[in-house]
Amino acid sequence: MLNMNLLKKLRPSSRESSLFIILIVAVGGTGLINPRFLTGDGTRDLLTSTSVVALLAIGIAPIVVMRHIDLSIASTVGLSAWTVADFCAKNPSFTWVQCFVIGSIIGLAVGIVNGLLVAGLRLPSLVVTLGTLYIVRGLVYVVSNSVDYNAQEMPESLLALGQKVYFGLLPFTFLMVIIAMILMALFMKYTKSGRDAYAIGSNPPAADLVGLKVFRRTFLAFVFSGVMAGIAGVFYLMRFAQVDSTAFYGQELAVVAAVVIGGVTIMGGSGTVVGAVIGALLVQTIQGGLAALGVDAFWKAAINGLLLIIAIYADRVLAVRNEKQLLAQRIRERI
């Protein structure tokens, strides 16, 4: 199954390890309040409900590493989910294969547009993807024309795949997330493109100076994020078996929160895909834990926001401590 050697090679940094410990504590704590959380069913629910956000987190992690952001992903999920459902409703012969192909193509198209605007014209990614967030969601409104789709219009093979569970607790979608995470983690660590992403985010002017292919890397990162969002749209269908024009509306911030909580700093240059996935799991677990405590689901967004602010603050505290040490060192050397 999973190649242990490969896992070892990923060598999680201390940040990921501590996050993982926090995750275990959170899962354990939730389990204490609600024992069902620790059962196979509970784990399966957690993993199923995290799949979409986790896949998107894998998609935007490289972008955030490059000191950019992609806010259009949630709209892309919506467009992909609705369009895939629409195609399936009109072509009953379609199976899960066509679903993934269509979803990917839609994500690819959005990614190309974002990539050209951000990398080609060097426009700020925040504004560009804010714009495409609108445009893509608007497209969903226009093409859907208030038509919703339910389970009966979707291919059985797709829904079956969505129900598929390995070892009693690993849903198909999360298995895909794990595979994507491992491949991406290896890519980010062992290829030139991956390393360039860190360099570009760490020091953009220097990246230009040493002649890194900034345009190509940035462009491809947006394309990748787009494709992941397209596939996440299909995951969305597999989980909910229904879709309307507001599907996944406004969830881009939940993904950004997951990524930042997972240790990918918004200032670029550091963080890993593994961290981003753990971040997504952590957010979902904390949500689950608070629900178990009897906190109303309406507080979900508030908790997401608070978690994000705490994550940014923790990051800042670490950076300030670092700077202070440097200064102290400098003073020592001066004496």
Partner: peptide
Amino acid sequence: AVTIGTLALYRGIANG
């Protein structure tokens, strides 16, 4: 980053 956080936070409090 912070106001993405408070965007969710304030709206979330209204929701709650």
